[in-house]
Nucleic acid binder design. Structure first.
Length: 275
DNA sequence: CCCCAGGGCCATA
DNA sequence: TATGGCCATGGG
């Protein structure tokens, strides 16, 4: 999880990661750590009950995509001339989810077109300005701001945080859809298939092909999402194919074609080659 | 100083 | 349908 970027929604301390979590009406501080052959989780702060423990476990499972058997994916990777090395190098690397759809959409808008260092800085400013937090061992742990909060923020306030006018408008607009109940993870999930979900997402101002696929991958766990137009993906594909230029869309499609049902994972693994 | 970052909108033709 | 300008900032 630690790629050297400054993520403000969880903190990595040694072999454990700490993240504030809302389960039903309760706010807890979740800890997940590496325990040799398993992930172990615990509640550092907040109410603890059997119900909350179960939901925290479910969250960890979704966050780390623990239910998925990666063996078929590695089987396909092994058969590929230029990608088989990934099986050993990245063994066990899973698709880290962004379960909160609103957060995932906002994060995409923030990250559009700017370098990741700056993107994480913008996210931190947004979160620390409008998100709530809980304190643990004299450190604040932040929740992503609620749409009901962000919908009442002005474009100029976000520009003061160095958001571009476009990003500010997109985020406030998305917050409005969530606050009014026009969009939610449940609403999006109710669509019959991934293609319909993609169509619905593309209606949102600020959401293009890259963002829609990223969100379906990270929040809805759809397995065939290719972030076309992604400069990072293009760089990685160019590298593994040994090209001295950006790959065409057709070349990307050709590379991904054998990985039906695992294409999102291949995107994740290709991104990994960049860090 | 330049170019371009894990894009997308909008105007124009 | 296709193309180009624009956005904000910072790292290389």
């Amino acid at each position: 999880m630690d790629r050297g970027y400054d993520d403000c929604l969880y903190s990595i301390e040694g072999d454990r990661v700490i993240k504030p979590l809302q389960v039903d009406e309760s706010r807890i501080l979740l800890e997940v750590k590496d325990d040799a052959n398993a992930l172990e989780f615990g509640i550092l702060a907040g109410e603890v009950s059997s119900s909350i423990l179960k939901k925290a476990a479910d969250y960890v499972s979704e966050w780390f995509d623990l239910e998925r058997d990666l063996a078929p994916y590695y089987g396909q990777l092994d058969q590929h001339d230029r990608l088989s090395w990934m099986t050993d190098r990245y063994h066990g690397l899973r698709l880290m989810g962004i379960p909160d759809l609103f957060e995932a959409l906002c994060w995409c808008v923030i990250g559009q077109q700017i370098n990741l260092t700056f993107a994480y800085r913008l996210k931190r400013r947004l979160v620390e300005s409008y998100g709530s937090s809980i304190e643990y061992e004299s450190k604040q742990h932040y929740y992503f701001p609620a749409p009901e909060r962000l919908v009442n923020v002005s474009v100029d306030e976000l520009r003061d945080l160095q958001f571009s006018r476009q990003k500010a408008e997109y985020i406030i607009g998305i917050a409005g859809q969530f606050a009014k109940g026009e969009m939610s993870k449940e609403i999006l999930s109710a669509h019959s298939n991934g293609k319909q979900m993609l169509k619905r997402l593309l209606k949102i101002r600020g959401v293009g092909e890259w963002t829609a696929n990223y969100v379906l991958m990270k929040s809805l766990k759809k397995m065939n999402c290719i972030t076309y137009g992604d400069t990072g993906l293009q760089t990685a594909v160019s590298s593994v194919l040994g090209l001295d230029r950006k790959p065409s869309r057709q070349e990307i499609e050709a590379l991904f074609a054998p990985f039906e049902d695992w294409q999102s994972y291949l995107v994740i693994y290709l991104w990994r080659t960049l860090s």
